[in-house]
Structures are given as structure tokens and as C-alpha cells.
């Protein structure tokens, strides 16, 4: 088994499309996108979010995922050492027309958001039989 590499969180560079009212760090979640025959499955690493703090929206052909994270606080302790930042997540994707907008499943488990974007039935692969004339 190979070792895990690349884990650094990527902060959003410059002003993001949506204006934020909070002065908090925003990170780009790392994603895996898997294309299955019937759907497109997206996994996003968003540690610190739960089902109540993650938002998924589709507007026209833009899919946006965002999540808010409450930075941890421990009473009577001060942060002595920090290698990663804690902040919100935000990322947008362009989706193709063959995704059925009304049939999207979203699940959050162990800080990973899973989206199942079902393909519209008419976009599913159809085999056309060729007949001899």
C-alpha cells in the first residue's frame, strides 16, 4: 500500500465569487469524481462539517458545494502549534446537461460529502441495433 501524500489544504485565492460576510479562511475541498454508467459520484473531503453545515446548490449548470466549520476551542488552553488552518469550504463545478437536476443525493459521513448526480434517463447509453436492409 502506498503512503498518503499531498494533504495540504488549498485556500481560495483572491475574492471568491460569492461575497462572504465573515472574515474566515475558505478552503477548496479536495474531490474525487467517479463516472459510473448511471451517475456521476463526487466525494469531497470536508473535515469538520456535518449534515447541518453543508450546502449543495445547482444553479443552471453550476454545482456549488460549501460548508461551514466552527473552529475548535478548548478552555484554559492556548494553541501552541498549528500545521493546518480551520475554515469554511467552497467549490464550484460545471455540470453537463445530461445530469438530472431533480435527482441528486447528498450524504455526509466522517467529514466526507458524497454526491450522487444521477444522469437523466435520456442521456443513458442506448444501444441501437443495426439491421440489414
Amino acid at each position: 500500500m502506498k503512503n498518503m501524500t499531498e494533504y495540504e489544504k488549498n485556500p481560495v485565492q483572491g475574492p471568491s465569487a460569492a461575497e462572504h460576510t465573515k472574515s474566515r479562511r475558505v478552503y477548496i475541498p479536495r474531490v474525487d469524481i467517479i463516472d459510473t454508467k448511471a451517475a456521476v459520484v463526487l466525494y469531497a473531503d470536508m473535515p469538520g462539517v456535518d449534515e447541518g453545515s453543508v450546502d449543495v446548490t445547482i444553479e443552471k449548470n453550476v454545482l456549488n458545494i460549501s460548508g461551514t466549520v466552527k473552529p475548535p476551542e478548548f478552555q484554559g488552553m492556548s494553541i501552541a502549534y498549528a500545521e493546518y488552518g480551520v475554515g469554511d469550504y467552497d467549490r464550484s463545478f460545471t455540470i453537463s446537461d445530461d445530469i438530472d437536476r431533480g435527482n441528486v443525493e447528498a450524504l455526509v459521513r466522517n467529514g466526507v460529502l458524497k454526491l450522487v448526480l444521477h444522469k437523466a434517463p435520456e442521456a443513458a447509453v442506448r444501444k441501437i441495433t443495426v439491421r440489414a436492409q
Binding site: 500500500m1 498518503m4 474531490v31 469524481i33 467517479i34 463516472d35 454508467k37 466525494y43
Partner: peptide, 13 residues
Amino acid sequence: GESYHRQERSAGK
């Protein structure tokens, strides 16, 4: 029949 479009999340030890 499945394929990765994007693979950014790392796995391993």
C-alpha cells in the same frame, strides 16, 4: 465500467 474523472483525495498509509 467506472472511471475517475478527477482524483485529488489521497489514500494510503
